[in-house]
Amino acid sequence: MGILEIKNVGKRFGGLQALSDVNLSVQENSVHAIIGPNGAGKSTLLNCLVGKLIPDTGSVTFQGQSLLGRHPHEINQMGVARVFQTPEIFGDLDVMENVMIPCFARRDGSFRMHAFETVMNEKELVEKAEQILIDVNMIDKRHMHSASLSRGDKRRLEMAMCLVQEPKLLLLDEPTAGMARADTNNTIDLLKEIKEKRDITMAIIEHDMHVVFSLAERITVLAQGTPLVEETPENIKGHPKVREAYLGEAQV
């Protein structure tokens, strides 16, 4: 049984059946990619995992516990972190504070009223935050205003914020969308490094086949809300069904 089990999940928006009968099992410590053409339901599926959407049918379990009906912050506290398509960071805060917040969240849970301490006096957390910034190569930018970072750096920062929480499952929603090739390759290297160093499971939603084939161990192809195939990268490349989903009936 996988770390994340998705069973018979369906979701309907008005007249649109965004997901129907999705079954998916993500194995522990693997990198699982979910690909598919636009409108296949990839993002909807991800939103169902993190508590932003509640599926109409089916079940989602993480390490044997149901995720349905839980708030995003509860799901995160269980060990699921998410990287967004456009980096979601705290733009008004500096880089160090951005990383300190998940450190506090990990240690103190979803709410604690520590109104009379000083942020930088928490030596243990500061050390942890500095270490993760060294890992993602951003330690020299720790006093920078995070809104002024480049897009690639924002992505790194967001990863750092997720990783410092030591999540068991990292969900990545198109981590290289809109990036230049060089930034994309950097991101791939970063993800590979993360994978080597940590016990972490990753689920990636991605358009860019280059990224998918460099990272994924299993690939699920989603089309029109249902999984078409689940295979290893080698077998996916020439799969007729995948060709059909992406290119339509016409033979190219």
């Binding site: 995003p72 912050h73 733009g91 917040i101 998940p102």
Partner: peptide, 10 residues
Amino acid sequence: NQQRMNYTGL
């Protein structure tokens, strides 16, 4: 960023 806050477990 409230969204990031929620997805940071807060």
